[in-house]
Write a protein that binds this DNA or RNA. Structure first.
Length: 209
DNA sequence: CCCTGATTCGC
DNA sequence: GCGAATCAGG
């Protein structure tokens, strides 16, 4: 595979979005993450680490401009290093309700129970995890509800191996989504959701049956 | 061990 | 220019 124009374009786009080199490589296909990184560097678009140069201090060296230091593109996605906590570039969430472009007015039974909904989990389906929110450490729970506010709120089809697959809401409801934050390596969920999904078995010695 | 990006250097 | 190998981290 070669770096065709549109492949480069996709590379730029994804890199700009904070996608990792391996993800980009996977998306492009036919190239390794090394190839992607190499290209990224050759293109001049590389670190956008909070203004601070991770490698060398941009001091001295008054002759580093032959190749021109490609003016940093207006990249806004701040990637807090390899710690993975990519701020969802654009997560405009209008407190759900999204009546904006409802081509169909179909949810009469969709009361504005925003806050309540988050707290009340429809538990019951054989679906994924949905913890019985009764034996989870308050801390973990708090963390989740907090995280769910930052969630990317992606759809089923937007799920990838690296997006948190924690479902939120009632699948039968229009406001059903998946967390979508970066998963904790290996696990299918992000850090917060791993926390509630995998309970170490602590304050739950009763109801043991 | 998984992952990340950075760099080098033969091609 | 390209990217595998390597390096240097988290």
């Amino acid at each position: 595979m070669s770096w065709t124009d549109d492949r480069v374009e996709l590379l730029k786009k994804m890199w700009g979005e904070g996608q990792s080199a391996s993800q980009i490589a996977k998306e492009l296909g036919g190239v390794t993450r090394n190839a992607v990184i190499g290209k990224v560097h050759r293109l001049g678009l590389s670190n956008r680490t909070t203004g601070a140069a991770v490698t060398d201090a941009p001091e001295a060296a008054a002759d580093i401009d032959v190749e021109a230091e490609v003016a940093a593109p207006p990249v806004e996605a701040a990637r807090p290093k390899a710690s993975s906590r990519p701020e969802p570039d654009a997560a405009p969430f209008p407190e759900m309700a999204g009546e904006a472009e409802d081509e169909e007015d179909d949810d009469p039974p969709a009361p504005p129970m925003s806050a309540a909904r988050r707290a009340i989990i429809p538990a019951g389906q054989p679906l994924p995890p949905q913890p019985s929110a009764n034996e989870i450490s308050p801390e973990a729970l708090a963390k989740v509800t907090e995280v769910e506010k930052q969630a990317r709120r992606i759809t089923l089809m937007e799920l990838t191996e690296r997006t948190c697959k924690w479902p939120v809401g009632d699948p039968a409801t229009p406001d059903f989504w998946f967390c979508g934050l970066p998963v904790q390596q290996g696990k299918p969920y992000c850090e917060a959701h791993v926390g509630v999904a995998f309970q170490p078995m602590s304050s739950r010695r009763d109801r043991k049956r």
